[in-house]
Design a binder for these strands. Sequence first.
DNA 1: ATTGAAAGTGAGTAATCACTCGCTAATCAA
DNA 2: TTGATTAGCGAGTGATTACTCACTTTCAAT
Lengths: 226, 226
Amino acid sequence: MNKPPTFVEGLLEYVEELKDESEMTEKQRNILRASVKLFAEKGFHASSTSEIAKEAGVAEGTIFRHYKSKKDILLAVVAPVLVKFAAPFILKDVREIFKEQNKKTFSQIVTELYRNRIDLVLANEKHIRILLQEAFFHDEIREALIATVFTGVKEMANKLIEAKVEVGELRPLPTQAVFRAILSSMIGLVLFRQVLDTDEFTQFSDDEQIALTVDILLNGIGNHSI
Amino acid sequence: MNKPPTFVEGLLEYVEELKDESEMTEKQRNILRASVKLFAEKGFHASSTSEIAKEAGVAEGTIFRHYKSKKDILLAVVAPVLVKFAAPFILKDVREIFKEQNKKTFSQIVTELYRNRIDLVLANEKHIRILLQEAFFHDEIREALIATVFTGVKEMANKLIEAKVEVGELRPLPTQAVFRAILSSMIGLVLFRQVLDTDEFTQFSDDEQIALTVDILLNGIGNHSI
DNA sequence: ATTGAAAGTGAGTAATCACTCGCTAATCAA
DNA sequence: TTGATTAGCGAGTGATTACTCACTTTCAAT
């Protein structure tokens, strides 16, 4: 049983080969930009290379000069987002939030975490859409996603949770259940924000929504004042 | 501003035209079965009609005898699931759970609700996968999904929430935030169950997971015993 | 037994697919 | 200026796409 070199390792290795945007041709950047647009709008399989070429203002041959297959474009689009979630230089954001955990209350930490993640999602809306979309069908992408979002964050979160239970700030529940609760709330926050823009849900600002969510996460919806 | 005849109305109308499985030909059922399998495995766009025909053991022409386009097959696959979530005869399940709300505690009601929804998801795994998948790109499907899952359930849920706040069983939080919390927990429950089958998450039975989730939903993860 | 409609067929169609290749244009170090 | 490498092009490739249509089979009602 030779465990594959852990997904994150593999991912990071792959990413090192990735060109930096600055050392791309104008046309190459256009190809990526067009791909992101089309993949997000109609999905990977429904977008043809001829469409991409057209949208990018480029000959179809040029696409295959830079990417050896259509799937290669998908990976080039998706990998950077994955990295943003996983790689140290952004995970650092999360790490920094966690770092001063002794000085901050759990509720402060989670509030910052939610704020931070919402911003990240908003800044990469289309990419994330593509990522989730294709994670359904491409094993590599799904595994990388799980490895980064979960395995990456989970360990840190678990340490924090256990520390805060120790201190008595959190109830002694199974860590796994607490982790799930935190993540569920976050997903709900982002999901509702994206999917619903009815008056009902936009009457509160982002920060108010976050505050409410954290309040409920910590205190529940039940009434204990009696 | 002529409001469209409400999505649910339109949906139910459409569904009435839908043939019952019993009045389908053997071959027609095979076509649906094959489509579900392929769509779930590789997605709508990546599945070709020739593949479907092959998988169903049917000539390609036969497919178009029953469905006037490929997209028609998708709708035929997806509509029944939508109905299961929305239409009275199953929404009844939810309604019954809510009905005796005076006699039951909120925690009992939510427990039953979660149990019920998890079973529904498990029983229709592939269909739901297809539904979510294609909701990304087909406006009609997404709107129908939102209309059924949200608009349908929301009103009932809101009444329940407000009633339980009145009684003092729940804190007087914005109804919308409470609704979101309930839904988020449920989504988290199903999502983790489906995506992760690590030891860590399977060490508790479904019912234990539900109980934990409801506990956290009601009481939060914070420690108030001090 | 006859008939008519529905179910089923599979070769055929134009369009589109991802991708190739022989070519020219631009870039740049020597 | 040269020579070599890279970027860019677009007509052309065979394979595959969703879909059609003229035809046969099935079968229930007369």
